[in-house]
């Protein structure tokens, strides 16, 4: 696969997913770990992937879909390159994380849960990140930003805008 080919890449990932399913075969309650593996591979679990899982695991599609839509970790559509998660845990909320989220929404023109048209940013609200000492906190992919103020937002976003 020297040339970039989206379809081949997708097929490749499906093969990897089959390996995961093979590994978990016979394990009790394997559907969740398989879905988690799929989410990691594809960045989301779209319908064709769910169908593939149902087929390979010999369960109904409705069961796979039921589980995939129950848990907020599983996304049915792809997320942006940078996923911004603003902590809406209690400690962050009482220290003003709503204002931070509002500011992000304003600057990016997004509502919580939405992805920008260019696929760069996804804005989301999340529960306690366990860094309450740094409240209010947000993560952008793996990076943690703490002690935030609305004023600091444009500057932080700028460092990701280029990349």
């Amino acid at each position: 696969m020297s040339e970039h080919c989206e379809n081949c890449e997708h097929q490749d990932k499906l093969l990897k997913l089959r390996d995961i399913i093979e590994q978990k075969r016979g394990e009790q309650g394997a559907l969740m770990p398989v879905l988690q593996g799929a989410q990691e591979l594809f960045g989301c679990v779209p319908m064709d992937v769910q169908k593939f899982i149902a087929q390979e695991m010999h369960v109904t599609l409705s069961e796979v879909y039921g589980v995939a839509t129950f848990y907020s970790q599983f996304a049915l559509e792809p997320k942006g390159k940078y996923v911004i998660s603003v902590c809406m845990g209690t400690a962050c909320y009482v220290k003003g994380s709503q204002a931070v989220l509002d500011k992000l929404g304003e600057v990016l023109g997004l509502k919580s849960g939405e992805t920008s048209a260019d696929g760069k940013f996804t804005l989301s609200a999340t529960r306690c990140l366990g860094a309450c000492g740094l409240a209010p906190v947000m993560t952008i992919n793996e990076d943690v930003h703490g002690r935030l103020t609305p004023e600091a937002i444009p500057g932080i976003l700028a460092t990701y805008q280029e990349g």
């Binding site: 009790q28 309650g29 559907l31 969740m32 589980v67 129950f70 907020s72 970790q73 529960r127």
Partner: peptide, 19 residues
């Protein structure tokens, strides 16, 4: 996988069972 109710013990076990 991000569901608060899974902290409840019967829900948690349903989740381990893959439901």
């Amino acid at each position: 996988a991000g569901a608060f109710v899974c902290g409840e013990e019967t829900a948690l076990m349903a989740s381990i069972e893959g439901h």
